[in-house]
């Protein structure tokens, strides 16, 4: 296998380049997926029937906390990739670890939110609006959950195998995924929560 040392290690083989391109295309598909979920949400947003409306339900504080957690995790994973490019294993692992911890905290707050909603009688079965809301948020949350498992597996591999064309490639692709989840969250924050609070 030819290794090209003039580019960052995650790009250094043909296979690596193809994997990165393939993942970008996958993210294109993910954009289509979330766009569809947003479209469903906007369609059903006003259909609250007997259930609560978004203004009844949403509170800014937990949502702000979630946003801050996820945005900073996107920043720390960026630092992690930077450390990886410099060949610094320990700092890279630390930043990845922090990222995953922030992701887990985000999930914790989201679960707490869901429990609160359900406590207020707003379940996924209550109305068209709530079905769409829980499905959109839940899909994002499931992506974060999967990311925690995936990121954990990558951390273990970095720990055992160090930086190789494969492990750096995986870490880089994972960082793309994580940034993407952040972007989706920004849309959720703006167009679901902020708009819903208004």
């Amino acid at each position: 296998m030819k290794i090209d040392h003039s580019v960052p290690m995650e790009y250094s083989t043909d296979e690596n380049k193809m994997k990165i391109l393939g993942f970008w295309i996958f993210l294109g598909a993910e954009i289509a997926l979330f766009s569809t979920l947003f479209a469903v949400y906007f369609t059903l947003q006003g259909n609250t029937k007997v259930g609560p409306t978004s203004a009844d339900l949403f509170h800014l504080t937990p949502v702000m906390i979630e946003t801050i957690l996820l945005l900073s995790s996107s920043f720390t994973i960026g630092l992690g990739i930077h450390a990886m490019r410099l060949g610094l294993k320990k700092p890279m692992m630390t930043f990845f670890g922090i990222t995953l911890a922030l992701g887990a905290a985000f999930l914790g707050v989201e679960v707490y939110e869901f429990v609160t909603y359900v406590g207020e009688g707003a379940t996924i079965q209550t109305s068209g609006f709530l079905s769409a809301l829980f499905t959109l948020l839940g899909t994002h949350g499931l992506h974060v959950t999967f990311g925690l498992l995936w990121g954990g597996a990558i951390l273990l591999q970095i720990k055992k195998r160090g930086f190789t064309p494969e492990t750096t490639n995986k870490s880089f692709i994972f960082s793309l995924y994580w940034h993407f989840l952040d972007v989706v969250w920004i849309f959720i924050f703006s167009f679901v929560y902020l708009k819903g609070l208004m």
Partner: peptide, 15 residues
């Protein structure tokens, strides 16, 4: 038991 496509609870069959 969600309500995406059932009219009576705010869903929409044309969706």
């Amino acid at each position: 038991g969600t309500q995406f496509f059932a009219m009576q609870s705010g869903g929409m069959d044309m969706l």
